[in-house]
Computed example of a mutant assay.
Amino acid sequence: MKKLLLAVVILVTTIASAQKNSILLGGNVGFSSEKIGDSKLENFEFSPKAGYQFAEKWTAGVEGSIMNVKSTGTDKTEKYKIGGFVRYSTPLSQMFSFYTDLGVGYQNTSLNNAKGMYASLTPALFINMKNGFGLNFSIGGINYDNLDGKNDPRQQRLGFDFGKTLNIGVSKNFAL
């Protein structure tokens, strides 16, 4: 585990910053599986992102997420998110940039047809691998979401999960 973390840190230090008037395409893919006794829970998530870098350090765009959750003995649940984001980035070197994303949007889940909103603030590190293609690393952030279903009481969550998660994504900046 320590070797993997060291390799990730070395890899992150190789990213170059994006250029003004460029298009950003990126995203994350995630999978988790948990088994306790006879119960099994599986999550799969795909989260694409597209934006336009309108100033040297600022990017704005759209983000989405599709998640499938399967649990033993229950139906499959699907969750969708669509929203916008604003990114502020600061180059640290030719290879590395630090950035923070602020995302806000709408969410829907097939469980009780619940609908609501979400907001997230995520600091991260971008490593430029070559020609604007790079890896994104984050270790959590601040998240808020709410859902209101037909037969369920309104759900609200506020999360502060720095150090509890590790997210690795891929992105590419295309110069215009």
Results as ranks from 00 to 15, higher is better:
Tyr52Ala: 01
Ile139Ala: 09
Gly105Ser: 01
Met129Ser: 07
Tyr52Phe: 15
Leu111Thr: 11
Asn173Gly: 06
Tyr144Ala: 03
Lys76Ser: 14
Glu63Ala: 12
Ile168Gly: 06
Ser120Val: 10
Gly116Phe: 03
Pro91Gly: 01
Glu56Cys: 02
Gly134Met: 00
Glu34Asp: 09
Leu158Gly: 06
Gly103Tyr: 10
Phe54Asn: 07
Ile23Gly: 05
Gly149Lys: 03
Leu11Asp: 07
Leu41Gly: 00
Tyr99Thr: 05
Val12Pro: 02
Val104Thr: 00
Ile82Cys: 05
Ile23Ser: 03
Leu102Trp: 03
Ile127Thr: 15
Ser110Asp: 12
Thr59Gln: 04
Ala16Asn: 14
Phe160Pro: 09
Ile23Tyr: 05
Gly73Arg: 04
Phe133Ala: 11
Asn128Asp: 14
Asn131Lys: 15
Phe54Ala: 03
Phe126Gln: 01
Phe85Trp: 05
Phe133Val: 11
Met95Pro: 03
Ser93Lys: 05
Phe133Lys: 02
Asn143Cys: 01
Val9Gly: 14
Ala18Glu: 14
Lys115Gly: 07
Asn21Met: 08
Leu176Asp: 04
Asp152Leu: 07
Phe96Thr: 12
Asp101Cys: 10
Val8Leu: 15
Gln53Ser: 14
Gly83Thr: 09
Gln53Val: 14
Leu6Arg: 02
Lys164Pro: 04
Pro153Ala: 07
Asn131Phe: 12
Phe137Glu: 02
Ala175Leu: 08
Val8Asn: 06
Gly163His: 02
Ser39Gln: 08
Leu41Lys: 13
Ser47Asp: 12
Ile168Pro: 10
Ser71Asn: 14
Leu158Thr: 03
Lys70Val: 03
Phe160His: 05
Glu34Cys: 02
Lys79Asp: 00
Ser97Asp: 04
Tyr80Ala: 08
Lys150Gly: 05
Ser93Arg: 09
Ala175His: 03
Leu41Asn: 13
Gly64Pro: 05
Asn128Met: 01
Thr72Asn: 10
Asn43Glu: 04
Ile168Lys: 00
Ala16Tyr: 02
Lys172Val: 07
Asn128Lys: 11
Leu147His: 05
Asn151Ser: 11
Ser47Thr: 15
Ser138Arg: 00
Phe98Cys: 06
Phe162Tyr: 08
Phe174Trp: 00
Val170Leu: 15
